[in-house]
């Protein structure tokens, strides 16, 4: 599907969701509470078939966190970015690890570096940092006076 067709199709199905203007990929904003249903829909609907989650990350905007999911379909050769806005103090979103297995590691990384809690994640533990690490290093307000060298 081309980008315009995809946007039209998705707008028809989900009139509430907003799309970003311009940008490299078609970007859809989804409420965090609906992410799990949307993820299953995006993977399993024959016209969508987003079978490959090629990037999963988080951005700290100081007022809120934004989860960013980059999706691609090997069958239809189209791509989509889904963004979910999360509350900074109580960051929670459904895990996508059962939908795309690659999300398991990526979510563990986001969990320790951003402090996002992934619900129903199969094994939510620290992956990169030591188990006793305090704080979420990739958040913008993180400060470590000992190990961090300011430029």
């Amino acid at each position: 599907m081309t980008r315009e067709d995809l946007q039209q199709d998705l707008t028809g199905r989900f009139p509430d969701f907003t799309f970003e203007e311009g940008g490299q990929f078609l970007t859809m904003h989804v409420p965090a509470a609906q992410w799990s249903n949307i993820a299953y829909f995006l993977r399993d609907t024959p016209e969508m078939q987003f079978d490959f989650l090629f990037c999963l990350t988080c951005v700290d905007w100081l007022k809120h966190l934004t989860m960013v999911y980059h999706l691609r379909s090997y069958t239809h050769k189209h791509e989509l970015v889904v963004k979910c806005q999360l509350d900074r103090d109580n960051a929670e979103i459904a895990s996508a690890a059962y939908i795309w297995r690659t999300a398991e590691f990526h979510e563990r990384e986001v969990f320790e570096l951003f402090g996002v809690n992934f619900l129903q994640h199969p094994d939510l533990r620290k992956l990169i940092l030591p188990d006793d690490w305090v704080g979420y290093p990739l958040r913008k307000d993180y400060d470590d006076p000992i190990n961090m060298i300011k430029l």
Binding site: F54, V59, H70, R101, E104, F105
Partner: peptide, 24 residues
């Protein structure tokens, strides 16, 4: 993946490294 706010440094940068996914 670069998120820019218009400055001289990236606001957020993410490297989607192939080894990380292959290891999983």
């Amino acid at each position: 993946y670069i998120v820019s706010e218009g400055g001289t440094t990236p606001y957020r940068i993410k490297f989607r490294s192939p080894g990380f996914s292959n290891l999983s």
